[in-house]
Design a protein around this nucleic acid. Sequence first.
RNA 1: GCCCCCAUCGUCUAGAGGCCUAGGACGCCACCCUUUCAAGGUGGAGAUCAGGGGUUCGAAUCCCCUUGGGGGCACCA
Length: 498
Amino acid sequence: MSPSNADDRPMRVRMAPSPTGPLHIGTARTSLYNFLAARHQGGTYVLRIEDTDDARSTADFERDIIDNLHWLGINWDEGPQVAGGEDVGAHGPYRQSQRMDRYAAEAGRLLASGTAYRCWCTPEELEAVRRKQEAAKEPPRYNGRCLRLTDAQRAAFEAEARPSVVRFRVEPERIRFDDLIRGEVEFDNALLGDFVIVRNDGVPLYHFVVVVDDEAMEITHVIRGEDHLSNTPKHIALIRALGYREPRFGHIPLILNPDRTKISKRKSQTAITAYREEGYLPEAMVNFMAFLGWSPGTEEEIFTLDELVERFELSKVHKGGAIFDRDRLDHLNGVYIRSLSDEQLALRLRPWIPEAVGDADLVRVVPLIRERLVKLADAPALIGFVWEPDEVVASWYAPELLHPKKGGPGEARSALTRAAEVLGEVDDLDFSADLVEQRCREAADAAGMKAGNFFTPMRVAVTGRTVSPPLFDSLELLGRDRALARIRLALEKLAVPA
RNA sequence: GCCCCCAUCGUCUAGAGGCCUAGGACGCCACCCUUUCAAGGUGGAGAUCAGGGGUUCGAAUCCCCUUGGGGGCACCA
């Protein structure tokens, strides 16, 4: 076991997203853990964009990743701070597409030393070999054919300018390392084939560039998903061949679909931006993601980002994967929503509320929905009746919904008729929830109706729904005249046979 | 197929040999509060700690085996 020589260096960690899709929940969680580890120890946090796969990488995805990391509150010390923007930091460039010279030089070193070699096998030939190996129940790996080429054959291939890849020559040795989370892990590289590090079009591949960049960026701790655990022996072999310093590796557990497979777009929502659009708060997302594979070892579970930074310990990260549980996320989101002041919540709600609704009006509406909001996007459905035109609100419900429980159109009509009278008697300036409630209760009493049966038709008439914020607060918000108008519209709907 | 990793209520987890007749939270059920829905409060069901062997006076905690689950084996990252 080669002891790590990284421990005495100041901690430098990185996240290395690939802009081939929007910010993925798994990438976000790995980024969060790297961020927490770095901030907790006062280390440096680097963002590197892994865009060597030109065909699949886009500027839009890069923007989505950077924007959403910022949205979560995850900031980095080095790397592009803004999508498409300038790099910050002394170890750049931080986009792999801008580092091709370095990769070419390092591949050249490997080629020169004989630890890498050119391979002219075609994809078809490789595929045939793989199939044969599978049939023979052998591990699928490169058979080393091009390693055994004669000089004449090699010269012939080069003469005809046949495209070639660069393969790394894997030593048949046992590779051991001390994983930050899993402890000692051992692999047998004899089971590995010589893998490709540079494509036949000259583009260097992941396993190679990640090692080159981590050295160049002086990364001391590679914290990544468990799906990379079995890639690590390849990286260590490369690191040794290149004469690099070996960072420490830590493999965090995967986030899982409900069926316990690695979380995927197919079975779960994986795009952070989608959660953002649904109205989850970044605080809730962060708190939730942090606990998918880590806990402070106590029974506390509500933590801000700063508190997480303070408490986070890599040594307390779990080994087993964790299912992404929506119910729990929803609950946490509610906790954070309820912790916001009227003004703060109104500000968060702004993107979901029509511009025509003024800020002051929005703030006034917040107390009616705060306890009822699971996600910010739920707000319009809960409180839209306040600003929607009376006719629109009336169109939301069928006349039957005006009927009180165990009652029919008759009860609805008499309740609404009485309600209209009562409301009409209150001066518009005195139209407060308390006063209106008092009067309505008296009216229900006098009519010999149960309060609930009296209120149900009013609720539907005024809010357009059977489930709504508290009725009398809603009435106060609406004002006497609009409330009366809606009750009249309801009475009309009752009069027209369906 | 081969290699590697993992294993406490349905889910997220507490638990580093005696504090565990296994705790908390989400979800679920009931009741309270209540004009609806929430929120809140109280209580409840829910895990023979995957199974089997050891080690030990003592094991959810240490070791081994089995089983189960997952990940990886690309000219993707």
